Computed example of a mutant assay.
Amino acid sequence: MSRLILFNKPYGVLSQFTPEGRWQGLRDYLALPGVYAAGRLDADSEGLLILTDDGALQSRIADPRHKLPKTYWVQVEGAPTDADLDPLRRGVDLGDFVTRPARARLIDEPAGLWPRNPPIRFRQAIPTSWIELTISEGKNRQVRRMTAKIGFPTLRLIRAAVGEWRLDALQPGEWKESHV
């Protein structure tokens, strides 16, 4: 029976067990031998990280060829309109590649959202907004690059779901076992 772990990765934690420099590793939160991350989240991103002890499942979850949708809550600088999100829905030319069309919609701040430590930069004169963005690929810093390209830099990035698995009520640093 494969193990599948849903972990709410806090800000400042790498998607690997070994810490590096100023970043913590997963071993500071998970004492589970034999499981490995299925995909990555940058240290400055938060949210759902899936771990498993099943190599084939790990590959299926992480490999973009399987097109598992990944849903993010993105706090951006500025106040985009629904029309401002159209380029995300069509695909954005990032120079080195063009993204696949994404699902994008404006949302209120997600209910039950925990405070980030450290907090995002705050500027009195510049509003922030939330976008729910679902992509089926996951190149390095893709979501941040996409929102910057349309003129709304990412301030906070939280992965809320991967395929059928959701963050739900998990708080930063918490994990639970799920089923495949």
Rank of each mutant, 00 (worst) to 15 (best):
T154E: 00
P127K: 14
R100V: 08
K139H: 13
L14D: 01
K70C: 01
W114V: 14
I5F: 02
G78R: 09
W175Q: 11
A102L: 06
S178L: 10
V13D: 06
L57H: 08
A43F: 04
L88R: 01
L133I: 08
P101R: 02
P87S: 12
D82W: 05
Y36S: 13
R89N: 04
M146P: 02
F17W: 12
V74P: 04
A102M: 06
E20V: 12
A43K: 14
A83K: 15
L26W: 03
R89M: 09
D82P: 07
P172T: 11
G163P: 09
A83F: 07
N8E: 05
T52M: 02
G163Q: 10
G34H: 12
R27Y: 04
A125I: 01
E177S: 10
G173C: 10
L94M: 12
W73D: 14
T147P: 10
I61C: 07
T81L: 06
W23G: 02
A102I: 10
Y11M: 11
R141T: 06
P127I: 03
E132M: 09
I5Q: 01
E46W: 08
Q24T: 01
R40V: 08
L113I: 14
W165K: 03
A102T: 08
K176G: 06
V98F: 04
G34E: 07
E174F: 05
L94T: 11
E20K: 14
P101T: 03
F7S: 04
G151I: 04
S15M: 11
S2R: 15
I135T: 06
W130F: 11
A102R: 00
D28L: 02
D108C: 13
I61F: 09
R90I: 11
A160N: 06
I126T: 15
W23H: 15
L157Y: 05
D82K: 07
E77M: 15
L170H: 09
S15A: 15
Q16K: 00
H179W: 14
Q16A: 15
A37C: 09
V35W: 09
P10E: 04
V35Q: 10
R123S: 13
E20L: 12
G173A: 12
F7A: 05
R60P: 02
D63W: 08
E109G: 00
G47N: 07
E174Q: 15
S136V: 14
L6A: 15
T128L: 08
I150Y: 04
K149T: 01
I61W: 01
K9H: 00
A37S: 15
I131Y: 01
I107L: 04
M146A: 06
D44P: 02
R89L: 02
P118Q: 09
L6K: 00
L155S: 06
W175A: 14
W165T: 07
I150E: 07
L170M: 10
S15W: 05
Q58P: 06
L113K: 00
G12Y: 01
L32G: 05
L106D: 08
L30S: 09
P101D: 05
F152P: 04
I126A: 12
I150N: 03
V13N: 04
R121K: 13
P119N: 09
